[in-house]
Design a protein around this nucleic acid. Structure first.
Lengths: 196, 196
DNA sequence: CTATACATTGACCGATCGTTCTAATTAATT
DNA sequence: AATTAATTAGAACGATCGGTCAATGTATAG
């Protein structure tokens, strides 16, 4: 009950909790009561700090996109084989999304859930997807330089296929109870990609 | 205002309208008023015929799954090259999902939106995905028989990859305004698959 | 010490949600 | 002609939604 002139909670920390709720329940289904309980802060604090629900969602997706991009970037830019880095990334996602109760990618589920007509959220998502696509392109080009895939391979198309598959994986992970399906997906991609 | 003892509307026809609303807005965001307006029937008729919102959604997804399965089956079982049939199917989806304002696959968006914890809807979705996977497997096996892909190719994994990619496509189609991205996805898949 | 900024709880708001129900109406059946 | 099944519009329901506000308390800054 009242803690003085400094915020008594870490903004990023409670935003992380909000991300979890939105990812698990979806934008519409997530109620403010749920968010409040999970975030563990007062109603007034929430509205003062994050604005209304849509604004909170925008901040949550923004943070999620930033963190996700950094994570992908780090994993793809590890030293060694670029192609193996891609494979390791997808294997990582297979494990994360294959767990029972996995919620998938907040951005992916939000594309389906949030009305993306022409709001800021839609722009945020397009920008994120574009940047991740670029990460794949750069990595695939390095794979070309190292002779891992064919010189004349269409890296942009392959990058887009990877982007698409990653979203599909997080979606399928939500509904399939065992990770078997996702293992197959990754195998399917790389039995093909390894032949390049 | 009152039309006698026979239903004055075609059940499947208004269910089709409901499918559109759910696909466009998502389960939670779609309100009964919206559904009523779009379906063009009275409130009592709706509740008498379809039960409550969840039951209506279940019937809508059921019909959608059935129609989708039949469409896929028909396209994959056309005479000629099985591999080309798969490619034609994905090219078709590229065009459908690439259109501005496309809503994507009702089942895909519902996976993200509807709470799939352990309801009938989740079972319906798993069953549908499994059946479509089987369609791909059968088609890929025929492609093997005809020497279109390698004898030792892991057709189950490739089938799962295709299933995953198709869901990713319908998701990306919702948020990307131009079909360029999806064209790349299809090209990416088949530049790889053609090498098998 | 005083003032200020931030916190908390909880009551409260109007709007809308999904749903039920009543009343009136119509057309086919018997 | 009477009955029955299906329709419609619309009133009304309690619940819950997102959001606001007032009252109160507390730690820091000057």
């Amino acid at each position: 009950m009242a803690r003085g002139p400094n915020k008594q909670f870490d903004v990023d920390e409670v935003l992380e909790k909000a991300i979890n709720v939105f990812a698990r329940r979806g934008y519409e289904a997530a109620t403010m009561s749920e968010l409040l309980t999970e975030m563990g802060i007062g109603k007034k604090s929430l509205y003062d700090t994050f604005g209304n629900k849509e604004s909170l969602f925008f901040k949550a997706t923004g943070r999620y996109a930033r963190l996700t991009y950094n994570d992908i970037s780090e994993r793809l830019n590890k030293p060694g084989s670029p192609l193996q880095n891609i494979r390791a990334l997808f294997t990582h996602w297979k494990e994360v999304n294959g767990k029972p109760g996995s919620c998938g990618c907040l951005l992916g589920t939000s594309i389906a859930d949030f009305n993306t007509d022409d709001t800021d959220v839609a722009l945020l998502m397009r920008g994120h997807l574009q940047r991740v696509e670029d990460l794949y392109v750069q990595t695939l080009k390095r794979a070309q330089d190292q002779g891992e895939i064919a010189e004349n391979a269409d890296v942009i198309s392959i990058a887009r296929m990877l982007l698409c598959a990653s979203q599909g994986m997080s979606l399928l992970g939500r509904v399939m109870e065992n990770g078997e399906m996702l293992s197959g997906v990754v195998d399917g991609i790389f039995t093909l990609l390894d032949k390049e």
